[in-house]
Design a protein around this nucleic acid. Sequence first.
DNA 1: TTTTTTCTCGCAAACGTTTGAAATAAATTA
DNA 2: TAATTTATTTCAAACGTTTGCGAGAAAAAA
Lengths: 336, 336
Amino acid sequence: MKRQVTIKDIAYKLGLSTSTVSRALKDHPDISSKTRTAVKELAALLGYRPNRIALNLRSNSTRTIGLIIPEIEHYFFSAIINGIEEIAYKNDYSVMVFQSNESYKREVINTNAVLTNRVDGVLVSFSKETNDFSHFQKLIDNEIPVVFFDRTTEDLPADQVVADDYQGAFQAVNHLIEKGCKRIAHFAAPQHLQIGKSRLAGYHDALLKHNIHFSHELVFLADTFETARKTAHEILRKPNAPDGFFAVNDISAIAIIKAAKELGKRVPEDVKVVGFENSKSAAFSDPELTTVDQFGFELGREACLMLLRRLKEGENTDFQPVRKIIRTKLVVRNST
Amino acid sequence: MKRQVTIKDIAYKLGLSTSTVSRALKDHPDISSKTRTAVKELAALLGYRPNRIALNLRSNSTRTIGLIIPEIEHYFFSAIINGIEEIAYKNDYSVMVFQSNESYKREVINTNAVLTNRVDGVLVSFSKETNDFSHFQKLIDNEIPVVFFDRTTEDLPADQVVADDYQGAFQAVNHLIEKGCKRIAHFAAPQHLQIGKSRLAGYHDALLKHNIHFSHELVFLADTFETARKTAHEILRKPNAPDGFFAVNDISAIAIIKAAKELGKRVPEDVKVVGFENSKSAAFSDPELTTVDQFGFELGREACLMLLRRLKEGENTDFQPVRKIIRTKLVVRNST
DNA sequence: TTTTTTCTCGCAAACGTTTGAAATAAATTA
DNA sequence: TAATTTATTTCAAACGTTTGCGAGAAAAAA
């Protein structure tokens, strides 16, 4: 087993102390230029590489951030990870990824893993199942900065970065109305999620603005392909079927289009559909899906930047949680 | 700053030495049951949590694996990450993710990052740009086990996990021929990538089997949406246009379908298309895409399992690289 | 030459844990 | 009671760094 070369090895070979070597390597003014170059040359020759673990122990920090996320396979989340990794990379941080798979139990385990790994800070978007937040409180109690993104809560004193769900939903529904829709259904996310509430609110208010009656009968819980497809099938078959759909994500929107086609309805002529996310699939579906761009990459960047800012702050005397809202943008395509 | 509670704190409060506390916590037989319970109770009370960093330093291992991957946003890769994380989680390992963004330079930096982070092992799928592998050799020289997946090379003595690209390609093209295609084009990946070669070989041999002439003029380098779309446009306009396409990935296949539609050709009547990956988009496209399932999740699992096996082995006297091939499966849908 | 200042460098402790060996206390045997 | 074994605990070193402080040597000032 080839041991890694350490500062001791260099010190020994040069007849110096480890302190001197350590100082020489980081250009400490106390060290003569002669020994400095000698040390550096030998270090380069031997391929010395500081042992981060030892550094970690001494500094009690790991330059690592933990990421707890529901499902990597969702385009939106992978875009977010992309943004996070980008910023982390630029600031010489590493990212540890933990998936909750939308499971509360697993999320709690992840939270512990993040703690034992002694990450410097945590980014989290919690699972759909989660409505108790005490595991995150534990992070905060341990003085680990936490930034929530996308799936957030007001129940915790923590920073948040979210898409402008309300505005996005509002614009989407407004767009449907302007395109002539009279009866618009909303496929919603669970209402204990902030995004569920906000998008419903945007839907509601856009209707209101145009004096269209809001009815709970047109709001359905359907945020997966299967449920959306099934639900769309059912309601599109009824006599008084909607002529417009605002879905809480692209997957559901695509499912709606599929269901409509299967029932012989034309999109966008008979039924107009708008999604939320602007995933790759949205551009590939037929017709191409009108959707609200959530700017996942931006969101990830911002969340990570916010966390790094907190880490730089350190000792936060009086903590004031910040809530950052990332603009959304309606991308109009052929489904409306 | 609330310091984490350490073994010392417990020792002090109980009037014991740290050694005793350490041993008590891990049920060492030397410790009397009285002190053992006392220690454990106090530990639980204070919320003691062993400092992983100290452990790492002592054991010179981090229970962390590094993952170097081109782009998280690709469905295939995120599926792989999913599989990796699954296995890592079950074995109490954490995963550090580094994206190369298909850049050789960035990949080299990632390799260094992985080294300084002292991960126990590395999983890598290298970038399209990479054809010099000395940075990976550095990992091997440092006795860090490496497993390559998907994008692999024979130039390094390392384990590999790949999809059965040859077989998948063969089946795909065979399928096209059986469906009546006479003139089949192949949109290929760069030929310095093993997957590029293997899939081309599968294409070649399937033609051969049916006594169809293989021509280099029907093989194009096109593995992104844009290049595939452009290329498809060009060749579909020519008089002797292909009636079948085998694309190296789903994105390209979807681009081909799009181009065909734009030129007024019907899929699958006039042109048949088969992709490779079985991404979500494949199921959403219209017509739904026939494609080769690469089982990314399985592949990720296997790669991680193989790495963990190597880690358990430790001291490998005579290292014999293993190459594991994950079966692929043709998923027939409406594009053929 | 003596005193003071400036340059270089080494000592030792610290970060939190584990572990072989030594030490003490208790129990057993002679 | 003395000698021996056994049970329990502590000591100290180690993992690889950093860093406050002190020390010796050389240079400058007196």
